[in-house]
Design a protein around this nucleic acid. Structure first.
Lengths: 228, 228
DNA sequence: CGGAACGTTGAGTTCGGTCAATGCATGTGG
DNA sequence: CCACATGCATTGACCGAACTCAACGTTCCG
């Protein structure tokens, strides 16, 4: 079942530069698996037996403590988790669940570590990926700690706006509940924040967004390349 | 001035395993520098010209946006910053300042990238360091998002307690203002949180801490290897 | 002897979370 | 096709955690 996806796997940034031999070593023990929505893929504290790569779908990384839960990242196609635990051979620090039907590649951690030792191109790709994850985590922390919830949404909308070809009118890709957890708030607060944005050039109707005054929105959001 | 410190540098985890030749390449363009307290070492947005390694002292990593500021990490001897920016050749996402008189090694980013290409042992050390930084960031995020300020302090005190040889009475290593920013709160709130902990087995007098009831403190703090 | 920074305490405010009620959409079984 | 259940979204009332501002005591240092 792996062979059907071999080309798309090969094209992933993590594997694009590795030698043919290394690629065979990495894929020999790997397998592709489909999961239904709401499936818990890994649980924090478990040993890191596999590196996971998202091919399609949407994954939520979250963590719990004393009955509280927080959502740390949303992952989509081509994202990996959890590389750091795999490399260090330590337990996962986060849990992962599917939000929708998703397809993943799972590669045994030992194979990752073995190829990493031999193939310096793969090592480079690993480092690049890891550094990108780290920088993503830092950006997330800054976004959360330096901005109010309204500001986080405003910047989120600006990113969506550009992702939709700078059309003033577009539909949200996720349901609002997802967006809320992604931005670190409850859906109730998301509603209020959306209401707030009516004063800053945004009209919201269901999951239809209309940017009525882009300059006003930018003035409010103040997007920053060091965060977004 | 580098030669005086060559042995302590060589012993750092990042360099312990590299070949003699690689080590020479890394240290050739490097230099050791001393900084007074409150010196700003790097500013977010600047290009990542040097990898910094702390030899002694204490460094605060922080970030600003729109006049707000947040403290992201406290670093001590043997910690590095900012590896990810150096590797990816991207601008810093955080600023750094000394909190006390500190000594640092600064290694040109190009040298890091060059040796990384050639020396797979160094590449391994880089990956290990990067993965550790990433996991540290995740733990920090969990600590901040899943715990109240009192719980963060309680766990902080437990760590200090063990760092001081499990003595029931010990002095804080930092001034309380530092501890407050490190734990993501204001000094006023730190005061109140310390007051709170009187109900949970901790006596505070100035920077003197007395653990009067360890079990009670543990019951309140609920330390977790996946966060602490 | 001031002055400066730190630390503590109190009062008031803000942000965001919790709870509850309601509307709306979707889907399922009879 | 309807009846009902389920889940999402919105809104209001309330609450709690943490921040701001202000006052004041302490310590340290020039």
């Amino acid at each position: 079942m792996l062979s059907r996806h071999i080309d798309e796997i090969r094209a992933l940034p993590l594997f694009a530069q590795v030698s043919e031999a290394s690629f065979r070593d990495l894929t020999r023990g790997a397998y592709v698996q489909n999961f239904p929505p709401r499936a818990e893929l890994i649980t924090e504290g478990d040993p890191a037996d596999f590196l996971h790569v998202v091919i399609s779908g949407c994954i939520e990384m979250f963590a719990s403590w004393q009955g509280r839960e927080t959502s740390l990242f949303l992952l989509g196609p081509q994202d990996t988790f959890i590389l750091a635990a795999t490399i260090k051979d330590r337990p996962y620090l986060m849990s992962a669940r599917t939000l929708e039907k998703s397809r993943l590649i799972m590669i045994p951690s030992e194979d990752i570590r073995a190829v990493f030792e031999r193939d310096s191109d793969f090592a480079k790709a690993i480092v690049s990926e890891l550094a990108a994850c780290y920088r993503g985590a830092i950006k997330g922390a800054k976004n959360l700690r330096l901005r109010t919830s309204s500001e986080r949404i405003a910047n989120f909308l600006l990113k969506e706006y550009h992702a939709h070809g700078a059309q003033e009118r577009f539909a949200l890709d996720f349901e609002k509940k997802r967006i809320a957890t992604f931005l670190g708030m409850t859906r109730e607060n998301l509603s209020r924040a959306f209401a707030n944005l009516r004063n800053h050039g945004v009209q919201v109707d269901g999951n239809e967004i209309v940017i009525t005054d882009l300059d006003k929105l930018i003035a409010f959001a103040r997007p920053d390349p060091l965060i977004d």
